[in-house]
């Protein structure tokens, strides 16, 4: 399994990158990945995205996903505990709602089964084995922080989960990407010095196989998009791309057929 990650500040953000990327091995079997996009009109949103990521990671560490039946159950339980912890931290640090505004996309991976579950709160982008999901919320993400005071019981939590959270089960990971919405903000500079036959940035980053074995693949592709083709991303970008490079999978032809269909 190859894990590529990228975190880059956008052109429109002068001081801070408000996105955050999380990649953490919980055990031999499980890993947690996440991308978080702090709200630009919130307060010190780089803090919100990093704080939420670390709280969520800690909850999964305490819970030990190996003790759950499947990744979905572990993810749901970690989110419940994460909400409790976030409320507690908010109270302890006297934080306001607009200091906790960050989107959340988390992906719990079972590395043995090569399966997993994704949970998305707010906007962003997910690509599952070639199937792309642009989570669009008209630039007004449905942040978790809005609901902290409303989730007081397990029933509240279940109701919030069904109404405000998107969940994806992935029985077999072939090539999966989770990203903040910054991935949609590439703009091409109108300058004849740049090469004209430019790739489509989204495809280049999440489908193209160039440098797939290189751990800096995403960062270098971003550099190529900028220096060779004049593309810059206006918003911050946080991307995790997970590629299953199991020889068995390649032997079965699954990867080539996926790209042919994709």
């Amino acid at each position: 399994m190859q894990v590529h990650q990228l975190l880059k500040r956008g052109e429109n953000h002068k001081d801070f990158c408000e996105d955050f990327v999380m990649a953490y091995d919980l055990s031999e079997r499980y890993s947690i990945y996440g991308v978080f996009d702090g709200c630009s009109s919130g307060l010190e949103s780089h803090f919100a995205s990093a704080l939420i990521a670390k709280i969520f990671r800690a909850e999964l560490q305490f819970l030990e996903p190996d003790s759950f039946e499947n990744t979905k159950e572990a993810l749901n339980r970690a989110m419940l505990h994460g909400i409790e912890s976030l409320s507690s931290v908010r109270n302890n640090l006297l934080l306001e709602t607009d200091e906790l505004l960050s989107t959340i996309i988390v992906f719990l991976v079972d590395k043995i089964e090569m399966s997993g579950d994704i949970m998305a709160i707010g906007d962003g982008f997910i690509s599952i084995n070639g199937q792309m999901h642009k989570i669009e919320q008209n630039n007004q993400p449905d942040y978790l922080a809005y609901y902290l005071d409303q989730i007081n019981t397990f029933e509240d939590y279940e109701s919030w989960l069904s109404e405000h959270v998107l969940q994806f089960n992935i029985p077999q990971i072939i090539d999966v990407t989770i990203s903040t919405d910054g991935i949609h903000t590439f703009q091409k500079l109108n300058n004849k010095d740049y090469e004209q036959n430019a790739p489509y940035p989204l495809d280049f980053l999440i489908r193209d196989e160039y440098m797939i074995d290189n751990k800096t693949m995403l960062s270098r592709k971003c550099n190529i998009l900028r220096t060779k083709f004049g593309f810059t991303h206006q918003d911050d970008i946080g991307i995790i791309r997970i590629k299953n490079n199991s020889p068995k999978l390649i032997q079965n032809g699954t990867i080539s057929s996926y790209f042919a269909e994709g």
């Binding site: 440098m211 800096t216 270098r220 592709k221 550099n223 190529i224 060779k228």
Partner: peptide, 10 residues
């Protein structure tokens, strides 16, 4: 330097 830039290395 040019080769590196073409392969995304600053």
């Amino acid at each position: 330097r040019e080769n590196l830039e073409n392969s995304g290395v600053e």
